[in-house]
Amino acid sequence: MAVSFLRYEVSDLCLAKPALRSLSASATVADALEALKTCEENFISVWDCNHPKTTRSLDAGQLCRCVGKVCMVDVICYLCKDDNLVSPSAALKAPVSAILSKIPGQVMHVEPSCSLLAAIDLILQGVQNLVVPIRTRLSSSSRRKQHPKCTTTTFHNGQEFCWLTQEDVVRFLLSSIGLFSPIPAFSIDSLGIISTEILAINYHSSANSALQLISQSLCKQTSVAVVDSEGVLIGEISPFTLACCDESVAAAITTLSAGDLMSYIDCGGPPEHLVRVVMERLKERKLQGVLENYTLTSSSSYAHSLMSSSSDEESSVSPNTTLQPRSGRYSRSSSYSARMVRRAEAIVCHPKSSLVAVMIQAIAHRVNYVWVIEDDCSLVGIVTFSGMLKVFREHLETMA
Score class of each variant (00 low, 15 high):
V3M: 15
V3D: 15
E9S: 09
D12L: 06
D12C: 11
C14P: 03
A19Q: 08
A32P: 01
K37Y: 11
N50P: 00
D59N: 09
D74N: 15
C80Q: 04
K81C: 02
K81L: 14
S89M: 11
A98H: 10
I99R: 04
S101E: 07
P104Y: 06
Q106L: 15
V107A: 13
H109G: 03
C114E: 10
L130S: 03
V131S: 01
Q146G: 00
T165R: 03
D168V: 04
R171E: 13
S175T: 10
S181H: 05
I214N: 04
S217V: 11
C219M: 10
V224L: 09
V227I: 15
A251W: 05
S263K: 12
S263C: 13
P271F: 08
E272F: 07
R276H: 12
R276Q: 07
V290M: 15
T297P: 01
T297A: 05
T297L: 14
A303H: 02
S310I: 02
D312F: 12
R329S: 13
S337D: 11
S337T: 11
R342P: 00
A344N: 09
I347A: 05
I347V: 14
S353H: 12
A357N: 08
M359C: 15
N368G: 12
Y369Q: 13
E374S: 15
D375C: 09
I382Y: 00
T384N: 04
F385N: 09
G387P: 04
F392H: 02
R393G: 05
T398R: 08
T398Y: 13
M399S: 02
